[in-house]
Amino acid sequence: MRAPTSSMLALLAFWAVGPLYLMLKVSVSPPGEVMTARPTLLPHGLTLEHWRRLLEAGQVLPPLGKSLLTAGLVAAAALLLAAPAAYNLARLPSRWRYGILLGLFLVRMLPEVSIALPVAVVFLRWGLMDSVTGLVLAHLTLVLPVVAWVLTTTFLAIPREVEEAAALDGCSAWQTLWRVTLRLAVPGLAVAGLLAWLFSWEEFLLATYLTLGAKTMPLQVYYYLYQGNWFLTAAAATLMTAPVLLLTGLLQRHLRATSLAGAVR
């Protein structure tokens, strides 16, 4: 049993990580190693030419900035809108809570194409095409149900006795909320905020509908891909993945414990 298990795990791990290695390798390989009928698997030459071209052309920096700004705003707005709702959801009688959570679940199931079409038509009229504002508003529709779900689980896990004890010690309702409840909810808030950030960072469909010229990072990667430039694609994709791996690395400890129930939807 032991040996087959280990070799299967090794094979699965190879499958999980190998493609990312190839992406990194292509981004630093001389073209002769890659654009040939027999590409090499191990790096032989090493070049930073593709990275220099990617950053130099100035094509990638505006999308990078737009995506960073959008994702940051989406995370902040999602927490501001969803935290009060989740706090109150957690304090509702369970029948009500289940009904509302089921509603959120159903909203999450709606196809993006059916949201994107009318939103694009209206935003065109409102002059919100290509704008960060429009993109944030659109991304929130996908992010809010997930964030509200995760935060409801977070607030449910905080025992009411803690709040009651704070009230007995003379804290006002606001002091209790600020000094006790929110402090205890910080890990959950962090996970929810990071999830919102990640959703927005990689969102592709709504961005496609709402963009005429000012691309986001995923659209820029798609543009290089569409052009068939393997090297710029690989470098831009690596650039896009680096912050994600960093954040999910930070997230991983909490992923199982707090957020699985909501995060997966």
Partner: peptide, 26 residues
């Protein structure tokens, strides 16, 4: 290691898979 692809953006997954499944791919 097994969890790594989870956070990878979908468009990056597409880019990566193009290098794997291309005609002169890996």
């Amino acid at each position: 290691l097994l969890l790594v692809p989870l956070g990878v953006p979908t468009i990056v997954a597409a880019a990566v898979m193009r290098t794997v499944f291309g005609t002169v791919g890996y």
